[in-house]
Structure formats: structure tokens, C-alpha cells
Amino acid sequence: MRFMMIVKATQDSEAGVMPSQELVDAMMKYNEELMKAGVLLAAEGLHSSAGAIRISYPEAGGKPKIIDGPFTETKELIAGFTLIEVKSREEAIEWAKRMPDPHGFGEGVIELRQVIEPPELTQDPESQAMHVLVRDLGQQKI
């Protein structure tokens, strides 16, 4: 199963402050470890929300509304993500725990979310149920 490890934004990441060399090195070492364990699928860092664009639909069925960043609700924003392929939820947690504290200063938050995958690829009942839901929603659209 796939998990996305989402690193939440902080005031520093939003202000465009570069992480310390120490943290950069630790992150690189961590990514290498994921790679050597054969579990890393992708890892990306994101620019701050200053250059972000938000598209919203304030009215159902209405036109999209486009808003330029920066956005203020820092804790809801994300600064980067890492996708891993693991065998269990516990393995994902174990890897996430080994990620270096992304920000220090008591602000670091990592969120783990399971990726929805087709039922053929998973034996996990929860994601199978989710797949049926997503598929049905997709059919309704058509």
C-alpha cells in the first residue's frame, strides 16, 4: 500500500526561509535510506504559498474563482510530500517516525495519508471500500 507523508508548512517555510544545511543533509540521508530500502516512490518539496494559486467553487455549478497566494492559514498548508510503498500502516508510521523533524522549533508536523489504490492491488478492506465509493462517484459524473 502507498502512503503519502505530508510535511506541513510553518511560518519559516511560508516566509521562504531556507532550511539549515544540517536539516538538508539529514533529509538527504533519510531519502537515501528510503531508496535503499526500496520503498521510496517520490519526494518533492514545494515553494511557499506566495506563488500558489487557489481555484475554488463558491457556488455549486458556478464558475471557478481564482485566488492568488500567499494564503494565511499556515498550518493547513503543506511544504512537501514523500510517497512510499509499504506493506502495512505500521510500516508507514515507522518510516514517518524516522523522518528528521522537518522544521525544528517545535513546529514540525508530518501527516500520513493512505493513497487510494484499485482493489486488485490491495488486500486492505478499507481501501477496497473506498475504491468502490470513488468508482461509483466517478460513474455518477458520467
Binding site: 535503499k36 530500502a37 526500496g38 510503498e85 506493506k87 490491495t122
Partner: peptide, 20 residues
């Protein structure tokens, strides 16, 4: 027709081998 566990495991070991 498919058994994903074996595919995923072979792929993971292959990725490890590519690093070492």
C-alpha cells in the same frame, strides 16, 4: 490473474539492488 504481493516484493528488492 495477478498476485500483487509478489510483484511489489520483487520490485522492492530490485530497487534495493539498484542502489547497492
Amino acid at each position: 490473474w495477478i498476485r500483487p504481493v509478489l510483484c511489489m516484493e520483487a520490485l522492492r528488492l530490485g530497487r534495493i539492488l539498484a542502489e547497492i
